[in-house]
Design a protein around this nucleic acid. Structure first.
Lengths: 214, 214
DNA sequence: CAAGTTTTTGAGCGACTGCTCAACTGCCCG
DNA sequence: CGGGCAGTTGAGCAGTCGCTCAAAAACTTG
């Protein structure tokens, strides 16, 4: 067998794992169902990855790295909270059928009781967190009110919340849409605060300093 | 058998389902594992509920109604975003071992491909959404800036985000804690805006009106 | 072409799944 | 006391699970 064949089969299995995870859910993702989605024999899961958990761990990394790399440029162009939210929405719609983000939601659910999977999922999610953090650092640095928020914590909150909203969308698409609308509206409000005149700006900053000192 | 015995066994199974769901995850929740946690025979799952899915659906409703009823009074006393976030954190810590909220996260993950479960989960989550919405309506009505936010959408965003942060906590407790810190800080900022003097208040409102009109 | 290595396969193991069922228990009512 | 019945049980069925393994197939090298 050629060395490319090995990589090809591994890739088929990784893609099959991601498709199965998003189409059938973590509960129905098995060596046989993944192999069927990949169009190969189920024994190859164990030949190439050793165990199902290991395959899922690598699939998590594979899917996340792929997506992060794909969107890195667009993320680099984001300069406001509104744009960040709009980006999240667009990316989610683009990838809906491929489900490369929902993978994380399914794996997070499965990871609650499987330490091996928990590590891989945490690592995968942290790739997104790191990207969001970069954006937030930039956005907050550009905002006169940026000093009143913690980009590190917010990046985690944004990434985790997105996972939750994604799961919610699976059972109530309209509700999830309205939730995203409300958040975008909130981002608009935040942006408007940045554009206050100098007098109002100073009053706001003064009040915020007093409030966040105690 | 007395009619109370029937209700007793059902309750044992419902509690067993919730415990299994949170301790083992959706993937390892089966008629036998739930029955073992409940201390009864596995056949009773089918005698009393007809199927495992039906048991999980009822367990979702059972757990959510129980929790919402238990916290309704405290929710009624909340009058700011900061208090709402602090409440979420407290409730989560109180129930960590019982896991009555994490149930929703596990069920949401399982519901992505099981329509029967999706309905029950959506219904369960909507109980929380309704409570959060009441709080938000009150909080926003009391805030001079309340008109610039949509309580219906925000309630859904808050509830879904909480589910996501809960899942995130399962793989990175410190990260989740920092995320909650950042959100509380943000709530402090929002509260501070409410307490601006009349001149700054008017400037802010004027700017927000212009920004959210377009 | 033959020998050797890597990859792929189908069959099969024990354990588990959802679910059924005949048999059994304990209670109410005649 | 004796049916009748709600509730409970363990055994068992067909199917899937993770995983193993010997053998076949595909490819590389001499």
């Amino acid at each position: 067998m050629s060395p490319q064949a090995r990589a090809q089969t591994r890739e088929k299995l990784l893609d099959g794992a991601i498709r199965t995870l998003t189409e059938q859910g973590i509960a129905k993702t098995s060596a046989r169902s993944v192999a069927a989605a990949a169009g190969v024999n189920q024994a190859l899961v164990f030949y190439h990855f050793g165990s199902v958990d290991e395959l899922l761990s690598e699939a998590c990394r594979y899917a996340t790295e792929q997506r992060v790399a794909r969107y890195r440029e667009r993320l680099a162009g984001i300069s406001s909270l509104g744009e960040l939210l709009a980006f999240g929405r667009e990316m989610h719609e683009e990838e809906r059928e491929a489900g490369h983000v929902a993978v994380l939601a399914q794996l997070l659910a499965g990871a609650q009781t499987q330490p091996r999977l928990a590590d891989a999922t945490a690592a995968g999610l942290s790739l997104w967190v790191a990207e969001v953090e970069k954006v937030l650092v930039r956005v907050l640095a550009a905002s006169p009110l940026g000093e009143f928020a913690d980009p590190v914590g917010l990046a985690r909150a944004v990434a985790a919340s997105f996972v939750g909203i994604e799961l919610y969308e699976g059972v109530d698409r309209d509700g999830a849409g309205r939730a995203l609308d409300a958040l975008e509206q909130l981002a608009t409000v935040a942006a408007a605060l940045d554009e206050l005149g100098p007098v109002a700006q100073r009053a706001v900053r003064h009040r915020l300093r007093r409030a966040t000192r105690g």
